[in-house]
């Protein structure tokens, strides 16, 4: 089994590009690869030949090419590393998205397996842990803004699920009669599973029907199904309002 880092940095980048193009467009053409990497067709061909020799790509000078099973596996590894490093930089550390993208491109090749697994563990801890009453990440962002650092007051509780950075707007903010598309579910594991089971999942269109006379819960409609849910549950559903 080939590990990340066994190839040269640039060949790994090529592999990743091919993989991404295949996922996005269904096929990777030499011209697209050249565009994506910002290099000439000729250098792409050079690289492809070397990847072919390594048994990672099936390239016989055709217009489109295939990754071999091993190539695909390696590419997936590189790609998921890339996404992880990017996420770590931008979501956890708060690095600007463009900078994070650039840094992820170079960092992804040089991280040892050991460091990576610790980073993954740390990310999980940071995203789900608590610093006193506050989530660690919220506390960190606040301290970044104010320049003030505060240690945890309480033993961190373990929470199920992995809350992401919230952006909003949320289903609970929708006015009756308005429609929206569900973007993301932030709820805890059990509630999220229940929401998904009832058909409240990303990509689905919902309409806010009404708010109960006492102000809670709310009634929403998805497809032909009327559902009631508490505002606290609706507040965990990130939506994109539709006109």
């Amino acid at each position: 089994m080939r590990q990340v880092g066994a190839l040269s940095e640039s060949l790994e980048d090529y592999l990743e590009t091919i993989y991404n193009l295949q996922v996005e467009n269904g096929a990777a053409k030499v011209s697209d690869i050249a565009d994506a990497r910002g290099v000439s067709m000729a250098s792409v061909c050079q690289a492809l030949k070397r990847l072919d020799r390594e048994g990672l790509v099936d390239y016989s000078a055709r217009e489109s090419l295939e990754l071999t099973p091993e190539g695909r596996r390696l590419a997936q590894k590189i790609s998921s590393r890339h996404r992880f490093v990017f996420r770590f930089l931008s979501h956890i550390l708060g690095v600007d998205k463009d900078v994070a993208e650039k840094d992820a491109c170079s960092l992804e090749h040089h991280l040892s397996k050991e460091t990576l697994s610790h980073l993954v563990a740390f990310t999980q801890f940071a995203e789900s842990g608590f610093c006193g009453e506050e989530k660690i990440m919220d506390s960190y962002r606040r301290s970044e803004r104010t320049g003030q650092v505060r240690g945890p007051r309480r033993r961190p509780r373990r929470r199920q699920g992995r809350p992401r950075h919230r952006e909003g707007p949320f289903l609970s903010e929708l006015k009756p009669g308005r429609r929206a598309r569900i973007m993301h579910l932030h709820a805890s594991c059990a509630i999220r599973q229940r929401l998904v089971d009832m058909g409240l999942l990303p990509g689905v269109e919902v309409e806010m029907i009404r708010v109960a006379p006492l102000g809670d819960p709310v009634e929403v409609k998805i497809r032909d199904l009327s559902l009631s849910l508490r505002k606290s549950e609706a507040a965990a559903i990130e939506v994109e309002p539709l006109p």
Binding site: A190, L195, M198, P217, S228, R230
Partner: peptide, 12 residues
């Protein structure tokens, strides 16, 4: 334990 979710169908 966690409050049971109130996600409930309002049947026709």
């Amino acid at each position: 334990g966690e409050n049971s979710p109130f996600v409930m169908e309002l049947p026709p």
